[in-house]
């Protein structure tokens, strides 16, 4: 069974055909990478899967249930979580509170219960806080628990986004360039985090430019170019594909 199925999906912005008639599937328990040159449509694809944009044609299925056009918060409920290429951090909140927002759906968020601070609210918050601290430690943010997010360095914010997404306990985690702008050591750490997440049973969709990272950890790679599928397969198959080499990998060396 497939976890996510994308069928004939297209979207355009004005005259730009950002994604054109794209088909692919994602199997559960895998690390599925999406690569392609700048402007290939990777982020746009993630935005369609997570409900930020609705595709103009085509359909998307999660667990064989059509999710095309559903709103982002609905999709979160169905088990999608993501990070953002251009950081989307709640800067005036603490790092821990950012992660706690990620836990939203698991908490008692009934207004009356919260107004009266019923025990179920405080109990839930206490357990969530514990879990969120663990998650932060697992992505290497143990030193930033109470830090104000806005004061944290870029590399730490990249991980904070991952911790916030993981706090939702998603079944499908979509990462949009988690290693962008990181140095080699930091990239290596992110690499380990992703592998650890995948091992814990979460299916990972990874959009990334760092070829070493992608080739090293992916089970499956989808190559986009100008909004179309250029190639698809295992890292070895993709690396050997002449079209990919010509259009994309060749440029890297």
């Amino acid at each position: 069974m497939t976890l996510l199925r994308v069928e004939g999906v297209s979207i355009q912005f004005g005259g730009v055909q950002a994604i054109q008639d794209l088909d692919f599937v994602i199997n559960p328990g895998t690390i599925h990478s999406i690569i392609g040159p700048n402007g290939a449509g990777k982020t746009t694809l993630l935005n369609m899967i997570t409900g930020i944009y609705a595709p103009s044609t085509g359909a998307i299925y999660l667990d064989d249930v059509p999710i095309t056009g559903r709103r982002p918060h609905d999709l979160a409920r169905l088990g999608l979580a993501r990070t953002f290429q251009n950081l989307q951090i709640m800067r005036t909140m603490t790092a821990l509170d950012n992660v706690m927002v990620g836990r939203h759906l698991h908490l008692n968020r009934n207004l009356l219960s919260c107004l009266l601070r019923l025990p179920s609210v405080t109990r839930g918050d206490r357990q969530a806080r514990k879990r969120c601290v663990e998650l932060m430690e697992s992505v290497g943010l143990g030193g930033y628990i109470d830090a104000e997010a806005g004061a944290m360095p870029y590399g730490a914010l990249k991980r904070l986004e991952i911790a916030r997404a993981l706090a939702a306990e998603p079944k499908l985690l979509l990462l949009d360039e988690p290693a962008a702008g990181l140095n080699a050591t930091e990239t290596k750490e992110i690499d380990e985090v992703i592998v650890k997440v995948a091992r814990s049973g979460v299916t990972v969709v990874l959009v990334e430019h760092d070829m070493k990272l992608v080739m090293g950890i992916s089970d499956h790679i989808l190559v986009l170019d100008y909004g179309r599928k250029l190639a698809e397969g295992t890292p070895e198959a993709v690396r050997a594909n002449p079209a990919v080499v010509a259009a994309y990998l060749g440029a890297v060396g």
């Binding site: 930020i52 927002v101 836990r103 939203h104 968020r109 601070r117």
Partner: peptide
Amino acid sequence: SPVGRALRGLNGSEVAAQAAGV
């Protein structure tokens, strides 16, 4: 409470809050 964090969360980043299920 979760409600308060959701409010500050959507203030800080509306898309991120939505992606978190808010």
